[in-house]
Design a binder for these strands. Structure first.
Lengths: 232, 232
DNA sequence: ACCCCGACTTGATCCAGGTCAAGCGTCGGC
DNA sequence: GCCGACGCTTGACCTGGATCAAGTCGGGGT
């Protein structure tokens, strides 16, 4: 991505490899001073924000290759917490050092902007999901997303284990646990997937993809695309 | 914010002032090549993403001082559109030039990271809003947000005009127009605000703030904070 | 090997808010 | 100044999904 081997080495030098973390360990907690970004090497992590009332909002699940902590730069403190879902290898990148590096390597700076921008674009997608989509569409989108991200890492896009609980999935998607459970059952009945505990097998990616929003008899549509209007 | 007057001048040099834009004008459209960031000087802008089915998701309303287009860096193309809501003055900042500048001015680079990070943190807040909050909480949060942002710009935090329609507000908050309308009426009945067409007067900021989520009899709480767990 | 607890499923019921259906007031165009 | 239309309000009704309430199952600890 436009970095010389020498650049890569410099970047590599500032990355800290920590010993493997285990289920339940925190990368950081809400309120912690911001020092580093974290990259998942293997395993998975969830990030979540405690909401005032005592509940929490799951903000994301992070798979290998994904980066965590970008939202903390502005306030110089973490606004959310990150907890390891299974035994995981995590790299730590001290942000101060990274900033120095990006200031002297233009292409790295560009990558950094792209990374931050990508995170924004992703959040934007989630906003659409939570604002406009039905429970069915949300869960289908979640499964497709997992599938694609695993594939990107060279893992099976159709056969995988979920490291998070139904509860966490529901929280993430703005749904009750019961709804998630029922939908898994339904998808299975419809032959779209096999569910066994945390073991997921997707049998019909296309159909699942179709559920996400493209097709469908245009269910809930709260902005009744006033069709005939011409000069628009 | 750590810039020398000379730095400021350099930044100022690359900013383009465009002639005023009018209601309905586009800053950019979904799919356009990404060239510049835009800053609202006066007026307001809405950004929105067309969803596959023909509807649209309003992603945000941008008031003076706010920046637009950060989500386009990654793909080098705009994933959403931005439309001017009322006669507005907008500055354009060619991103290529800005990148050059941030590479040579460390504090500017830092500001840029903070800006991007802030956007992420803001989207995160919206996720919580859309994922967990009731219609009442959403609208209250929207009003408080408008109030605070106007105040930051030295405008009245309690007396202002909304440049967007009820429809757009509803779309933004994931609510039907009717719900927005009913809530405005209710808030007015409860003495929290005065509504006259687009003219808004907030009478009780504290009460409105209270509605947002902090207090309240803990309505919907789909992750029953398993209270007593110790080692957590 | 057993037990216990937490995770999950399934069914019954409820309700916030979406949808449908009239009006009505305002504003821009002529 | 009149007219048409769009934006907003209000009421009636309906439904997706939350909540409540039992079970069932599996896995880890002793």
């Amino acid at each position: 991505m436009g970095l010389t081997p020498e650049d890569v080495e410099r970047l590599d030098d500032i990355v800290k490899r920590t010993r493997p973390l285990h289920r339940g360990d925190f990368l950081f907690r809400n309120g912690d001073r911001f020092r580093s970004l974290y990259v998942v090497k293997t395993g998975s992590v969830k990030s979540f924000a405690p909401s005032p009332e005592g509940g929490e909002q799951v903000l994301g699940f992070h798979l290998p290759g994904e980066i965590i902590g970008l939202d903390a730069i502005e306030k110089d403190a973490h606004a959310c917490s990150a907890k390891v879902l299974e035994t995981s290898a995590i790299c730590e990148i001290p942000f101060g050092r990274l900033e120095e590096l990006t200031a002297s390597i233009a292409s790295l700076q560009h990558q950094m902007y792209r990374l931050l921008s990508k995170e924004i674009a992703h959040d934007t997608d989630m906003l659409l999901l939570l604002g406009k989509k039905s429970a069915e569409e949300r869960l289908a989108a979640f499964l497709i997303s997992m599938s694609k991200r695993l594939q990107k890492r060279g893992l099976s896009p159709t056969d995988f284990y979920l490291s998070m609980s139904r509860h966490e999935i529901g929280n993430y998607l703005g749904l009750a646990v019961e709804t998630v459970s029922r939908l898994f059952t339904r998808f299975q009945d419809e032959g779209l997937m096999l569910v066994d505990r945390k073991h997921i097998q997707l049998l019909n990616l296309e159909a699942l993809d179709g559920l996400v929003g493209g097709a469908g008899p245009c269910r809930q549509q709260q902005n009744r695309a006033r069709a005939p209007v011409a000069g628009d």
